[in-house]
Each structure stands twice: as C-alpha cells, then as structure tokens.
Design a protein around this nucleic acid. Structure first.
Lengths: 343, 343
DNA sequence: TTGTATGCGTTATCAG
DNA sequence: CTGATAACGCATACAA
C-alpha cells in the first residue's frame, strides 16, 4: 500500500488539504467537530501524522544539529573529554527539544565530506578545530561552532568558536617545569603527528591541531631545555602506556614528561608505576584537560572548562542572535602530586 | 540574498534544471564541457550543492537512523554498557556511511514522543526495550529494533529485536546463589521502580523493563530464599554506592546482593570496601552485563554480548531483507571472586 | 546528450 | 471557519 497523505484524507473527506493540515497543526483554525472527523478518518486510513521530511522542506528548519568528529564515532564515545563535552552539549539541546546528529568526518577521508552535504541539519558543532568539514558546512550556509583553536589567533576563519588559549596553556606548563629545574623533557603528541619519528626539532605539522599550539607554547615556556617530541599517533590511555617503552626504557630518561592530553598522561603514569617509578618522585608528569579522574590520580594538568565549551557551543547554535560568538574561556594550571622539582 | 537554487542556475545558463541537477549527481548524463560550465557558474553564483532536505523528500530516504534513549542523553554517554553498544552500532553505520541521530524520549515525558514524529530518519533502534517511542515509530511505518526484552516471550510486539533471555539469566544467578547456600538476599533494582520502598513481595512493576525479567528469574532461581528488593531509582555506580547505606548498615545484613547491572554492582562493591567488607569473603555480590571493568574488579556476573547487540541492531536497520530479525543471543554466568559459599 | 512535465508531502497566503 | 493555489528544491520517467 502506498503512503497515505493529507491529500488522500482530504479527498475522501471532501475537504481541502489545508483543513487536514490544520487539524494536525492548528486546532484553532477549524471547528472542533470537523477536526474530530478529520483525525478519526486519518487514523482509520492509517495516516500517521505529517511527514517529517516534507515538513522540514516546507518550514526550512530541521531542529537538528550535527556534531562532527574527526575520529571514528566509537572514539567519541570512549574519550572522557569528548563524552563530557557531548553531555553538556546534549543537555542544552534536549532542553530546547532539538536533536543531535553524529557525523564522523575523518580528515583523511575526502569522501566523508559528502556527509556534511547530505546532513539535514540547522547547524554544525564540533569539539574539534576548524577542520574542512566545518568550512564545508559554512559553504552550505550553516552556522558552525568549533571548540578547539588550531590556528594562531588572528588567522581566524569565519566560524564561531568556544576555545581556550592553548598556546598560553602550553606556555604555562613549560614555564612551570622550567622553574622546577627540568632540563630534559619528553613531549607526547597526539594524532596529528602519526607515523613520524621522535623529533628533536619542532616543525609545525601540516595539520593545524591544538597539539600544535600546545606544543609551541610548551617549547616557548621551557626556554632552552632539551625537548624530544614523540608522536603517539593517537590520543588514548593505551598510547600513553605505550609511551612507557619509548620514554622510560632508555638510559637518558627525561626528568619530566608532558602529554597533550590527560588520557594519555594517565596512561603514561600507569606505565611508570608498572616499572616501579612513582610520578612526582622519580619523574614528573603533566597533562592537559583536567578530567575528573585526573584529580584522583594526582595529575598536574591544565584545567579547561569542557562542559562550558559544550554548553556554549549548543547555545550559540540555538541562538543565532546571541551577541558574543567568539569565546575564549579561561584555563588554569592545576598543580598536583605528579610533578616535583629536579633534585 | 535569497537562497540560490538549481533553478536559478539553469535560468542564468539557459539550460534546464535537470541538467544542473545532473551536473551534480550524474556526471555521465551530460558532456564534460557543459558540466564544467554548470559547476563553474554554480560556484560563482554561490550555489553550494543540492539541498539535503529537498533531496531527502524527493528520494524518500534520509540515510539517517535514530537511536532512542529512555534517559537523558548525558546518561547514554556515561553508562559504559550504553557506550559499548553505541560504539558497535556506530561502527556499522559509519561503514555504510549512514549517520546517527540521537533522540531522548523519557518514558515519563509524553510530549517527547513528538521527537519521534519529527525525526527525519529511515529507522529507529534502541538499547532499550519496546517502549512507546518504538511503537510510535512503527506507527509511522519506520523499521524498529530494540535490544532489551521487557515482555514475556510470546507477548512480542511487532518490532524486530536483538536481545538475550533476561529471565533465564536471572534464573541462573538465583540458582547459583542458592547452591552456594545463600538464604538472605538483597536485590538492587534500577530505574523502573523509582520512589518505591523496599519490597519483600515482588509484584511485577507496571513498567515492563528488563529489570522485571531479571528479577523474576532471580526469584525463581533462588527458590524459597528471603529476598528484599530495593528500588534504587537509577542505574549508576552512585546508586550502587548509595545502596551501601540501605543494605550494609543494618543488623540483618544479607549474605548476598544482586544488582541488576554491573555499574550498580561495582558501585556497591566500593561501598562494601569502604566499610571494610571484602566482596567474596564477607558478602557475595553479583551483577549483570559483564563490563570490561567487571573482570578487573572480580565481579561475578552475567555476560551478555553488548557489541553484538549493537552491531546486529545496525545491520537489521540497514538491511530490511535480512532474514532473521528476532534474535536472541546467548548469555553466560561468569563466576569470579565476588561470590562465595555461605560458611 | 539535453529538456519537459510532474510529483515528493507539506504549509503560507490570501481569498471566500 | 474553510478552501484554492503556490511554493519548498530536487530528481524520476520519459520524450526529444
């Protein structure tokens, strides 16, 4: 059987399509009696209410917002930082009865950009930086909000954002370690530098990631210390644990290790303890983000307001009139027990 | 400026709308030269590719599937069981380049059902049972798949499903504890029985949840043991910890405690240890689900194949031709160190 | 290879 | 209070 439409009902009932439409959407536009008849007939004919897509086309709004991820979605669900952001974002959306569409648009996969084209949404947000997917969305005329700064301030693209100053955050970390006297530091980088060997010299990656800004800041803050950057290829506690091999099992072990994220830092701390090394006594460890579990683990880190990022991103999308649309939130160096002065 | 459409381009170029459409979707349907001209012109006019919604209306497909949750979305992201399911589900969807829309439809909130009406999707899945939202989706003619059996087998609704036999699982747990000699057991129930006092007598709740089947099974399996059911109101480790108060801080402490989920059971184990009680020595604890962390924690539990549930749910939605659409997956009692015979 | 007519299902507008 | 008409933007079927 073909799909029943308002037209069919109208025909059977001998009324206009408009009357049927009104029966569903604007009860005040027709007599209660007629409305009753329409609804009853509709039910009898197996009509199930206005078609969502048709209505969207007509109204020009979908009441749905996309969240894009550079990674596979399963990563988005497993990374605590991502989950926290998503929770805050979704709370705002739920309150406004808007729904959320998840889009995975790996930077590598050019084909995936069509997902942006084909998404029936009113706007796009991402915990990520201003990646190609965001630009594509804007080309479509959609509002966008990104939550990680990847380019130098000033070279801003067109999109709105809610970020922290990752460069400054990195700088504070570097400066802090320098003041503690650390002269040999290893830096665990994330996904952007996949496949590259450890680097003594830092060249800005061709990918503009927040790693880049954090790393630049750290290097600057550390001044002349000897720094080795280890590209882990992925941002996970597994990667952090794996870093134990590359960092701890060598003669010239560094006195401090900085990971570009807490998940990685916490994984690395596990690796330390497994080898009988206590962070904050035998080696210093610093992370970024300040996850809930970081407090329990005693990890010195940069706190950033994840939930505010998620909440504000949602609010910016929902309210195009909101005045301040380029937001830089504060961050803070939280010193815990995982760092110590060099003897 | 108004939105640029294919019609506008066609007019300017003096070709038909169809040619413009083809230039974007079927390059083989027109000369490379003309196509080139169309695309160039389109770009110049600020046309950004076919409109997603219009295309969906025309084609009748959205390539998007909804996932419904009975809880707030933030819960969906924080519960490990839910996250595992979602990860598996999304992996299949990603592979087929389909996207996912998240819908929160609390059972209590009747208004939320409109979210189902207004969702532009090709199908609906849920980790939940065959709740009203699912029925609503089917009324709309959408395929549905649910992943938790809530009714007795035989009283099946119309939807497809991927479940385990929760009653049997419960029975095995009860039987196991009975054989260990446990005569006084407390049962921590989840969300369904919110607000109710502890129950000595079990009446099937008016909500058909998997709790119901598990609980019935447990009671049956335990035979004549004295069972007290404590409705925790929510399914979280916090609730499990909170149960410590209701269970451990009393004279007639039970010899065994069963939680309807591992998260809760693990939380309860924390509460035990906080009071100096060691699960598996001073008290027996059993859960359901077998999360990864349950193995580490030594929790005796029912293993169920979460990832298979998610994967199969996605496959059923993506392939309406797939033959077996009512799937009951195997479960298994995994005995670990949290249970022991009564002295 | 290109064009024409038409429908997808709904709702705004405006006239009765 | 009710109805006729015209979009919304695109793509299928078929004709040229």
């Amino acid at each position: 059987m073909a799909k029943v439409t308002q037209q069919d009902i109208a025909k059977v009932l001998g009324v206009s399509v408009m009357t049927v439409s009104n029966a569903f959407n604007r009860p005040d536009q027709l007599s209660a009696d007629l409305r009753e008849r329409v609804l009853e007939r509709a039910a009898k004919m197996g009509y199930t209410g206005p078609d969502a897509v048709a209505r969207q086309l007509r109204s020009g709004r979908t009441n749905t917002f996309a969240v894009v991820f550079e990674e596979r979605l399963s990563y988005a669900f497993s990374d605590p930082f991502s989950v926290a952001w998503l929770a805050a974002f979704s709370e705002v959306m739920e309150r406004k009865r808007a729904s959320i569409t998840l889009l995975s648009v790996p930077a590598a996969d050019v084909d995936a950009l069509v997902a942006i084209q084909d998404a029936a949404v009113d706007g796009v947000a991402g915990l990520c930086g201003d990646q190609p997917a965001m630009a594509r969305a804007r080309e479509r005329g959609l509002p966008t909000v990104y939550c990680t700064r990847t380019s130098e301030p000033g070279s801003e693209q067109a999109g709105d954002y809610v970020v922290i100053d990752d460069y400054a955050a990195g700088f504070e970390v570097g400066q802090y370690l320098r003041r503690l006297g650390h002269q040999r530091v290893f830096l665990l980088a994330g996904a952007a530098y996949a496949g590259q060997p450890p680097m003594k010299e830092y060249h800005r990656g061709d990918l503009d990631t927040s790693d880049h800004l954090r790393i630049s800041g750290v290097l600057e803050g550390l001044g002349g210390a000897e720094v080795t950057i280890i590209p882990m290829g992925t941002n996970s506690s597994t990667a952090g644990r794996a870093a134990g091999v590359a960092v701890l099992d060598r003669r010239d072990r560094p006195t401090a290790v900085i990971a570009v994220s807490d998940v990685m830092a916490l994984g690395f701390m596990d690796a330390c303890r497994q080898r009988g090394l206590e962070p904050g006594r035998d080696i210093s460890v610093v992370g970024f983000d300040d996850l809930p579990e970081s407090a329990a683990g005693g990890l010195t880190t940069i706190h950033q307001p994840v939930r505010d990022k998620g909440r504000l991103a949602a609010e910016l999308l929902l309210d195009p009139q909101r005045p301040d649309r380029r937001i830089v939130l504060p961050h803070e160096l939280i010193v815990r027990s995982s760092t110590h002065p060099v003897a």
